[in-house]
């Protein structure tokens, strides 16, 4: 709450308490929905990419309603970078792991069955899930960082 007061004290044009409060309430739900879209990609439209963008959009919303410094508290630049690396690594790493497994080929998730026997087809399904998560992580962090960088002209301070 104290933070909120600080924000309102230096209020700029377009920042309103109503919006800020609404956004605060909304953001967790948006993020939840983003996660849902990623996880539920097997059964409904959506998947890592769309979910990742929605997660990223939640940070965009935070930035728009408050300012960039505030949003960066939730995900620092460093964390952002780590996440994007982690996401991309999760995908490529899984792909390579499949190849390293004896008799497996690149991106052949069923080969992971040799590590943890769940059945080849189940592994295919699970493998898709894993890489969707990877895509989601990467897309989330990068869509957020794209907006932050463009919005602050590369300074990563106040934002728009």
């Amino acid at each position: 709450m104290r933070l909120l007061q600080d924000q309102t004290a230096g209020q700029k044009l377009g920042e309103s308490l109503i919006i800020q409060t609404a956004v605060r309430m909304l953001v967790p739900f948006i993020q939840l929905f983003g996660l849902y879209v990623i996880v539920h990609g097997h059964y409904s439209p959506g998947g890592g990419f769309q979910g990742g963008v929605i997660l990223g959009a939640s940070f965009v919303l935070l930035t728009l309603a408050f300012d960039q410094k505030f949003a960066l508290k939730y995900m620092s630049e460093k964390a952002n970078n780590m996440l994007s690396n982690a996401g991309a690594l999760l995908f490529t790493g899984t792909a390579t792991l499949c190849a390293i497994c004896y008799g497996g080929m690149f991106l052949d998730y069923s080969a992971l069955d040799k590590l943890l026997p769940l059945g080849p087809i189940a592994w295919r399904s699970f493998g898709i899930f894993v890489i969707e998560v990877g895509v989601g992580l990467a897309v989330m962090s990068i869509s957020a960082s794209l907006f932050w960088l463009l919005g602050s002209n590369g300074e990563m301070d106040e934002g728009l």
């Binding site: 995908f91 898709i128 969707e132 895509v135």
Partner: peptide, 21 residues
């Protein structure tokens, strides 16, 4: 072959996973 009912996700994630990567 993949136990994923969403064909798009199945093809995207597995058959054409190389593209997606």
């Amino acid at each position: 072959e993949t136990h994923v009912p969403n064909l798009v996700t199945a093809v995207l994630g597995d058959y054409r996973g190389y593209d997606t990567m």
